[in-house]
Write a protein that binds this DNA or RNA. Sequence first.
DNA 1: CCACTAAGTAGCTTGACGGCTAATTATTAA
DNA 2: TTAATAATTAGCCGTCAAGCTACTTAGTGG
Lengths: 107, 107
Amino acid sequence: MDVYEALADPTRREIVTMLSVGERSAGEISGRFEMAGPSVSRHLKVLRESGLISYRREATSRFYRLEPDRLEEVRQWMDAQLDAVKARFDRLGAHLDRMKALEEGDD
Amino acid sequence: MDVYEALADPTRREIVTMLSVGERSAGEISGRFEMAGPSVSRHLKVLRESGLISYRREATSRFYRLEPDRLEEVRQWMDAQLDAVKARFDRLGAHLDRMKALEEGDD
DNA sequence: CCACTAAGTAGCTTGACGGCTAATTATTAA
DNA sequence: TTAATAATTAGCCGTCAAGCTACTTAGTGG
């Protein structure tokens, strides 16, 4: 599953937010949701496979952490779209300025 | 359907990119995809209802445009997560610096 | 080795998504 | 008013995602 689909689920976004603050064990994460443990585990798997999180072992626990690179990619995509819009507005603005200058030249 | 789910589909992301450059009619958009017209129309509906795009009528056509506000919201969410990670790293860095300073003081 | 704990996998059910074709709506122009 | 064009909605179908319970795996410590 790709990063965008991974982030489409609200539970997974919450997990990302939890991990943005610092590492958490699977149990700690699971504890914050109403749903059954295996359901959360599945979400963790999706996030893992999309590259958004990774983990380290410690005894029988797994401590998950956020992997910012993939998140950065998504933000860059957003930026690209927003920059394109902005560039278009800027060109429009410049165009209107030119029109206005011409108009005033006619006085 | 919410914005994150709307952006989870690659076709819809392509549409967003197309519209980031400027308005396009439903027909122009549809023409760029292999899939049948009604399928694209469905995607446009999802994007409309999520608030990512809007349209104006002109004769029998609908010209769609990107609505940057929702996209901005998503970017802000990404930023918040990434900022939290960064803040954590900064604190870690400062901590390590303090440790190092103490160590050097021991010489 | 055996029992215990933490977490994940298997397997199932339900509901939603995304594709299609056919039918409908809205608008223009003759 | 009627025909034509652009686009959407209706309805159907296969696939897949997300939840559950039951079971398995991995690792610890007595």
